[in-house]
Computed example of a mutant assay.
Amino acid sequence: MEIWINPACSKCRTAVSTLDKAGAAYTQRRYLEEPPTVDEIEEVLVRLGLEPWDIVRTGEPVAKEIGLKELPKDAEHRDRWVAAMAAHPKLIQRPIITLDDGTAVVARDPETLARVVEGS
């Protein structure tokens, strides 16, 4: 499994600590330093079963700066949402864990982390 993290994020640190305590095998991706491509974001969205606006941190200042908050959440504008995340990875919700079974989760709560650990 791989976990996309921002080391400054407390939820990311909690997720990493939980995985470490469980002895789970994983790799870390510091996605602000190694931003995902549009294709990688699309793949993660498929694995999550979500749309881009479902995992965008609209409270980030850059979301306002680029007008993302006003962008419609529809198929016509979907590519622009994904492109914004690729160009500004800080917009991506975190942590995201891609699992070996082909799924992924946004691991922001203890229940989701527990399911990840149980499956590892």
Rank of each mutant, 00 (worst) to 15 (best):
A84D: 01
L99C: 14
E60Q: 09
L91D: 00
T98I: 11
R80P: 01
I66S: 10
T98G: 07
V82F: 06
G102T: 14
G102F: 09
A75H: 08
A84E: 01
I96D: 00
D101V: 01
D79P: 05
A104Q: 04
A104F: 02
V82G: 02
R78Q: 06
A63G: 08
L71N: 04
I92H: 00
K69T: 13
D74L: 02
E76C: 03
R94G: 01
K90P: 05
P95Q: 05
T98H: 04
Q93E: 15
E65W: 12
I96P: 00
D100Q: 04
P72V: 08
W81P: 01
H77E: 00
A87R: 13
M85Q: 05
P89S: 13
D79N: 14
P89F: 10
P72T: 13
R94W: 02
A75S: 13
P89R: 12
A75N: 09
M85C: 13
I92L: 14
V62Q: 13
D101Y: 02
A86D: 10
D101T: 01
K90Q: 12
R80I: 00
Q93R: 08
D79C: 08
D101F: 03
R78D: 00
E60T: 07
I92V: 14
E76K: 05
L99Y: 08
D79Q: 14
P89Q: 13
T103F: 04
L68C: 11
G102V: 12
L99Q: 11
K90N: 10
G67L: 06
I92C: 04
K90F: 06
E60H: 10
R78K: 15
I97M: 11
A83F: 07
A104H: 02
M85L: 15
A104D: 02
T98M: 06
L91I: 05
T98P: 05
K64F: 09
H88N: 15
P95T: 07
I96M: 03
K69I: 15
L91G: 00
I92M: 07
A75L: 08
L71D: 01
P89G: 10
K69Q: 12
D100S: 05
L71V: 06
G67S: 10
R94F: 04
L99P: 02
D79G: 15
G67N: 12
P61K: 06
I66A: 12
A75Q: 12
E65T: 13
H77G: 01
D79V: 09
V62S: 11
A75F: 03
R80M: 06
K69A: 14
K90G: 13
E60M: 09
E70R: 15
W81N: 03
L91W: 02
L99M: 15
I66F: 14
L91M: 11
H88W: 12
P72I: 09
I92D: 02
D79M: 11
A63Q: 03
K90S: 11
A86R: 07
D74F: 04
K64C: 06
A87G: 14
K64Y: 08
P61F: 08
G102W: 06
A84W: 02
I66W: 09
D100I: 00
A87M: 12
H88I: 09
A83H: 08
E70N: 14
A104P: 03
D100W: 01
D101L: 02
W81T: 04
D74M: 02
D101C: 04
R94P: 01
W81G: 00
T103C: 10
G67H: 07
T103N: 11
G67R: 13
A83D: 15
E60K: 08
